[in-house]
């Protein structure tokens, strides 16, 4: 079984992102970049399926600028067998990204595609579901457990009320939630080995897809600031404030 894992290069999750001075966009000058945390979980799951003998090949794919090769190398160091960069200089929206990914998947015909549930830059939570629609595959989003049996998979999903298990026929799209696994760190020897693995660069223009933007970013601002609070000295003072000042308890 072949598994494709689409990954995204995003701002490291520890960075507090701010708007540019003219509020035209976020300020990404000199910020640390990393693989989206949910994509690390997706790679980890695919590699574990390979280690368990269920999968035979893991292919990491990203749609982005040339510098995304860095994250593809990380994916290779974490255990992916080869990588594909669909290169574009534009910042694409999830629909366009899903279209590009669908072309890669049509060419590779994997049995399983594992994505993150959400990229922590735009917090869109769309690409996997869109990709499933474009390919007419079944989808299992927000997975906390995946088990493959033959030509179907059973997936436990984290939903608002608790957990739901569904069965999907393969090939299918799965998106990862935080509890699916705990990703490993890349070891130094594996980082060295990753440099020799195959990384194929494909220009997006050759794919014949419409990637024109549907949304215009008008501005980016800071959220409304909260009024500064106070420290209370005791539980008694706290209860008094909540009753008499904030009036949120009686």
């Amino acid at each position: 079984m072949k598994i494709v894992v689409p990954i995204k290069r995003v701002v490291d999750y520890n960075v507090k992102v701010r708007p540019l001075g003219d509020q035209s966009d976020v300020d990404l000058n000199n910020v640390k970049m990393a693989m989206n945390p949910f994509c690390e979980i997706a790679i980890e799951e695919a590699v574990r399926l390979k280690e368990a003998g269920t999968a035979t090949e893991v292919i990491a794919v990203t749609v982005g600028k040339s510098d995304s090769q860095e994250q593809l190398r990380t994916a290779l160091a974490l255990g992916a067998d080869r990588a594909i960069l669909v290169e574009t200089d534009s910042l694409l929206e999830p629909l366009a990204i899903a279209k590009a990914l669908s072309k890669v998947i049509e060419a590779e015909s994997p049995q399983l595609v594992i994505l993150g549930k959400q990229a922590i830059d735009g917090d869109n939570n769309q690409t996997g579901q869109m990709l499933a629609a474009l390919l007419d595959y079944g989808q299992a989003t927000f997975a906390s457990e995946i088990s493959i049996d033959g030509d179907s998979a059973s997936v436990t999903r984290e939903i608002d009320g608790g957990l739901q298990t569904i069965k999907i026929s393969l090939p299918a799209i799965v998106t990862t939630d935080l509890r699916l696994n705990e990703p490993r760190y890349a070891s130094l020897p594996n980082i060295m080995k990753a440099k020799k693995k195959e990384l194929d660069v494909q220009p997006i223009d050759a794919m014949g897809i419409d990637t024109s933007p549907r949304m215009e970013l008008l501005s980016v601002e800071l959220p409304a600031a909260r009024q500064e609070g106070i420290k209370v000295e005791s539980v008694e003072e706290l209860v008094g404030k909540l009753k008499n000042e904030a009036k949120v308890i009686s």
Partner: peptide, 23 residues
């Protein structure tokens, strides 16, 4: 924008060739 809406709407959006606006 619950786990229900987040699961279904992007799929619809791609079926309609529309870029969803999330949350």
């Amino acid at each position: 924008a619950t786990t229900f809406g987040k699961n279904v709407l992007p799929r619809l959006s791609a079926l309609l060739d529309v870029q969803q606006i999330s949350e």
